[in-house]
Simulated assay, not measured.
Amino acid sequence: MKAALAALRRPQAITGVALLVVLWGAAFVGPLTASYGHEELDHSALLSPPSGEHWLGTSRLGEDLLAQCLRGLQKSLLVGVCVALVSTLLAAVVGTVAGYVGGRVDRLLMWATDALLVLPAVLVVAVVSPALRGRSWVWLVLVLAAFQWMLTARVVRARTLSLRERDFVHAARFMGLGTAQVIARHLLPHMAPLLIIDCTVNVGTAVLGEAGLSYFGLGIQPPDVSLGTLLATGTGSALTYPWVFLAPVGFLVATVTAVGLLGEALRASLGEEEGHGG
């Protein structure tokens, strides 16, 4: 936990956090104060370039691109954060249980982990996607999270194998604590820096994953809006009306960059702490 707090004092972390705050505020507060709604059409300004009336221009239907991008950013951030939380929680549970319990439980969980690692995620999503079309975006979160936890689970398991031989774990067992209590009270707190880093990085990965799936028609689809759907819509106008494509690209790049800066600061701080500890 000290590593996470120390990382927030690094310049790249400060930049990343500041950018994330701006983006989050724009996504969730901006639509409340915007002059146009994301579904509102201005028939007098079809494919209009950026102006004082429409700051980022308009689409081929006259939709305000700023309002569209803010709505898309809102959905992409929600998907990214939810995927990161679910996948990190799953990795923590699977990794600690496998490492602490051992035996058949360990072998079964690691077999399942390895099976998902070699399974082509894009192919599975392509097969599952038609069945989920028209349903809640929560299903997309679950599908993305299902393929984003395996590597972290293996790292958590390796650390658990080391920690379970420590004196504080033996003392907890001697006091009569059960498996769940030992994991929750003694093992997971020692994993906190790793899990925080993983959760942070997974937000950016999930945002990119959602954008990619939606771009290819496998994720969120119109009339719902995300950065991926806006990219797909604007691709055909990238050369003739570039603002239609560049507006969502700018928000996507800014989001991933902000998360990347914060994740890199956390990773560097954790590496320094482990180096001093060694």
Rank of each mutant, 00 (worst) to 15 (best):
T15H: 07
T15A: 15
A18I: 11
L19H: 03
L20E: 07
V21P: 00
V21T: 02
G25W: 11
A26R: 09
A27Q: 02
A27E: 00
F28S: 04
G30D: 01
P31M: 08
L32Y: 09
L32V: 14
E39N: 13
S44H: 12
A45F: 08
L47C: 06
L47T: 03
P49D: 08
P50K: 05
P50C: 06
G52I: 01
E53W: 09
S59R: 08
E63M: 11
L66K: 05
L70C: 01
L70I: 00
L70M: 04
R71G: 06
Q74E: 08
L77K: 09
G80Y: 06
G80T: 01
V83C: 05
L85A: 14
V86A: 13
V86Y: 03
G95N: 07
V97I: 14
V101T: 11
V101I: 15
V101E: 05
R104H: 08
V105Q: 03
R107H: 13
L108A: 15
M110T: 05
W111Q: 11
A112N: 06
L116Y: 03
L117C: 07
L119C: 10
P120Q: 10
V125R: 01
S129C: 11
A131R: 14
L132F: 04
G134T: 13
S136C: 08
W137Q: 11
V141T: 02
F147P: 02
M150Q: 15
T152C: 12
A153C: 00
V155F: 11
L163V: 06
L163S: 03
R166I: 10
R166P: 08
D167Q: 13
F168R: 04
F168Q: 03
F174Y: 11
G176R: 00
A180S: 14
H186Y: 14
L187N: 05
M191V: 11
L194M: 13
L195H: 09
L195A: 10
I197A: 12
D198W: 10
D198E: 14
T200A: 14
N202P: 00
V203C: 09
V203I: 15
V207E: 05
G209L: 05
G209V: 08
E210N: 07
A211H: 03
L213H: 07
L213F: 04
G217N: 00
G219H: 11
P222T: 08
P222G: 08
V225I: 15
V225E: 08
T233S: 09
T235Y: 13
G236T: 14
T240Y: 00
Y241I: 06
W243I: 07
A247Y: 02
V249F: 00
V249A: 02
L252T: 05
T257Y: 12
L261A: 00
L262T: 06
L266M: 09
A268C: 07
S269N: 02
E273M: 12
G275L: 14
G275M: 11
G277H: 15
G278I: 09
G278P: 10
